[in-house]
Design a protein around this nucleic acid. Structure first.
Lengths: 343, 343
DNA sequence: TTGAAAGCGCTAACAG
DNA sequence: CTGTTAGCGCTTTCAA
């Protein structure tokens, strides 16, 4: 910075003021400084600046993985949003328990970021407490955290929409497929089950535990046996609501391999509006992870800049039903099979 | 740090030495310092440290998006790898031209990282030149950069494998489907086309431009018309090699909708061994983005720590053929159709 | 093996 | 509007 100052014939302070865009610099001086900086390829050292301002200029995120549609979309919008605000994005990927323990033990983000966004982890009370005294705003994304800022979608409403859509098509035996192994979304999973149950109850349909079958997306045998279990019921379902699109697609695939036509013999609806949903004409409930990333980033910036801001504010994002080709009115034959028992 | 020093009854220098694990600290003192640090929840400020060491402790990556299988997998392994080495991961997401221009103009990574990994961008010479005088090692990932450190997979070999696999199954009319719009993989795209052509030439089969049809993964109409064009040829192909698994899956889907059985009437093979490949029993050529991330990270650390290291070293990662259920021997009827012209 | 002192590059008062 | 001065929290000589 001294170099730039010399070259422009001003003091370092003036260079600093110019480069930070402060208004208290005359246009001519500003021009000279900016040119000098450009010629010298000068960029302010965030390190040195943050030493005196106490601000690092970085926002950190804690994610279980980056290898998922949700995280990818969320961070792909969060990144540019932060960049536009002149902040850097620091990512902590915590794929397993060992890394997780290490992270919470050392809290490497301490003093190295201005805020932390925690994506879709199911934290223990102890972990949450650790984060509470991290000395920076912590925003919980894709989960509800009591008394702390959080951003998530309206999972219950989405599940209600999906289930009502199936009910409106005449389905009465509707299965729900939660998924395991999808790191860090048990909050959504629970909420979606709740919405499913609520819709059935509204319609006066008793809940049946046999219709709730957990499956893992990448466990082909589990899928086959799960689908088999449903079809083998005395009153098999005519429709299925999968917790996630990826699972829904896998189920559709499994059904079609077993020569069960979708949607003719079984309607299937997912949740997410994942990219694959469009390719496969899957009916689904859309959520927008990129909105989530952006909104979470905005919230973070607000909490950084304004310590008076409400630190218990929750943002709940909307969802939207997207009917496509995997849901259809219940077929007559199935209807007749189900009818005698239903009445 | 002064606080820790006081509490432990030593000087700040000693605290610094202890916390950096230098051997010149007596065990008793070390124990006292470590306890004091723990009690005070103390973490060294990277900012202040880097001011004097000249090292930031962060590795930056430049990516076109995070919303892709490749980037997600690569960064999911790079992140923990860097963390284990005590480094932070800084991500610059550059989804469009405006952000790209801004990035290369301001080069915000300058002085704020110790190395930069550039993932799958097709850079102009000018951009590359800008990076050359960024003042830190720049590693090109998923592309070959002449005279600069780079890490990529053996796309040509992979395409050779895929095409030979089809040839071995008796196919003679083999289409290739490159994809557009997949940000930043034109290097791989070109290489895979090369491998495809090479395999055909080896087998004495003349190249036919009509068999190369570009399609976009998310353009359903384009897929339908592309597939239609191939099937409408005087000698339609009996097999198709798609540049990427995602495209391959979309093509399989399009074919099956048109009542063209896969693999009975058309074999399809992809490239990547993307997660969807397994779900859909897609034959493919496996590459490992997570290996790529790890290897690139290791290379970065080596270049940071050892300025003597070879800065023109290329790492080429292997690929592997994974035959599954979408490729089969050429069917007799198609063979007969093709034969008269082939001989 | 430890401590004292200097200084990394910047920003924030304050004075002019 | 601009310059001077002090000091942010750490590491690194150098001396003890």
């Amino acid at each position: 910075m001294t170099d730039v100052a010399e070259r422009a014939g001003v003091s370092p302070s003036t260079v600093s003021r110019t480069l930070r865009g402060l208004p208290t610099v005359s246009p001519e001086v500003r021009a000279r400084v900016e040119q000098a900086a450009r010629e010298l390829n000068f960029a302010v050292s965030r390190q040195a600046a943050s030493l005196v301002t106490g601000r690092t200029g970085v926002v950190a995120v804690l994610v279980p993985t980056l290898n998922s549609w949700f995280m990818g979309s969320a961070l792909s919008s969060l990144g540019p949003m932060l960049r536009a605000a002149g902040r850097e994005l620091n990512v902590y990927v915590i794929p397993d328990l060992a890394e997780r323990t290490a992270f919470f033990e050392r809290l490497p983000a301490r003093r190295n970021a201005d805020a932390l966004l925690v994506f879709g982890f199911d934290l223990t009370d102890e972990e949450t407490a650790r984060l509470d005294d991290l000395g920076m705003p912590v925003i919980y994304v894709s989960q509800h955290a009591e008394g702390r800022p959080s951003v998530y979608v309206d999972d219950v409403a989405g599940a209600l929409m999906a289930t009502r859509h199936l009910l409106n098509l005449g389905h009465r035996r509707i299965a729900f497929a939660p998924t395991v192994g999808a790191s860090g979304f048990s909050f959504s999973s629970r909420e979606r089950l709740l919405g499913y149950q609520q819709a059935l109850t509204e319609a006066g349909i008793p809940l049946d535990d046999e219709l709730v079958v957990t499956m893992a997306i990448d466990d082909k045998r589990g899928l086959v046996s799960g689908v088999g279990r449903l079809l083998g019921l005395r009153e098999p379902p005519t429709a299925l609501f999968a917790e996630q699109d990826e699972l829904a697609v896998a189920v559709v695939h499994t059904l079609r391999r077993a020569r069960i036509e979708v949607p003719e013999r079984m309607s299937v609806i997912g949740f997410d509006d994942h990219q694959v949903a469009e390719w496969f004409d899957l009916s689904t409930v859309a959520q927008s992870p990129s909105d989530m990333g952006r909104v979470a980033g905005e919230l973070a910036l607000r909490l950084i800049d304004d310590s008076e801001a409400d630190h218990t504010r929750h943002v709940v994002l909307p969802v939207q039903l997207i009917p496509r080709a995997t849901t259809a009115p219940v077929a007559a034959p199935s209807r007749q099979l189900a009818d005698p028992a239903a009445s």
